[in-house]
Deep mutational scan, measured.
Amino acid sequence: MPSETPQAEVGPTGCPHRSGPHSAKGSLEKGSPEDKEAKEPLWIRPDAPSRCTWQLGRPASESPHHHTAPAKSPKILPDILKKIGDTPMVRINKIGKKFGLKCELLAKCEFFNAGGSVKDRISLRMIEDAERDGTLKPGDTIIEPTSGNTGIGLALAAAVRGYRCIIVMPEKMSSEKVDVLRALGAEIVRTPTNARFDSPESHVGVAWRLKNEIPNSHILDQYRNASNPLAHYDTTADEILQQCDGKLDMLVASVGTGGTITGIARKLKEKCPGCRIIGVDPEGSILAEPEELNQTEQTTYEVEGIGYDFIPTVLDRTVVDKWFKSNDEEAFTFARMLIAQEGLLCGGSAGSTVAVAVKAAQELQEGQRCVVILPDSVRNYMTKFLSDRWMLQKGFLKEEDLTEKKPWWWHLRVQELGLSAPLTVLPTITCGHTIEILREKGFDQAPVVDEAGVILGMVTLGNMLSSLLAGKVQPSDQVGKVIYKQFKQIRLTDTLGRLSHILEMDHFALVV
Rank of each mutant, 00 (worst) to 15 (best):
E4P: 10
P6A: 08
G11I: 02
P12R: 12
R18D: 14
E29T: 14
G31F: 11
E37T: 05
W43S: 06
R45V: 07
R58E: 15
R58V: 02
S61M: 08
S61V: 06
S63F: 08
H67D: 02
T68Q: 14
K72R: 10
S73I: 15
P74F: 08
L77H: 04
K83F: 09
P88L: 05
P88S: 10
V90I: 05
R91C: 02
N93E: 05
G96F: 02
C109G: 02
C109I: 02
C109K: 05
F112Q: 08
K119E: 13
S123G: 05
M126G: 07
E128A: 05
D129C: 06
E131C: 02
T135N: 11
K137L: 13
T141V: 11
E144M: 02
P145N: 02
S147A: 05
T150W: 02
I152L: 02
A155E: 02
A155G: 08
A155N: 06
A159N: 08
A159W: 02
A159L: 05
V160T: 02
R164M: 02
C165A: 12
M169P: 13
P170M: 08
E171A: 02
M173S: 10
M173N: 02
S174G: 04
E176F: 02
V178T: 02
R182G: 11
P192F: 02
A195L: 02
R196V: 04
R196E: 05
F197G: 06
P200I: 08
G205A: 02
V206R: 04
W208V: 08
R209T: 06
N212S: 12
N212Q: 12
E213Y: 02
N216W: 02
S217W: 05
H218F: 10
H218P: 04
L230R: 06
L230E: 14
T235L: 10
L241K: 07
Q242P: 02
Q243W: 05
C244D: 02
C244V: 14
L251T: 02
V252A: 11
V255D: 02
G256R: 02
G258N: 07
G259R: 14
T260M: 04
I261M: 09
T262P: 02
K267C: 12
K269W: 02
C272V: 13
P273N: 06
P273Y: 02
G274T: 02
R276I: 08
R276G: 05
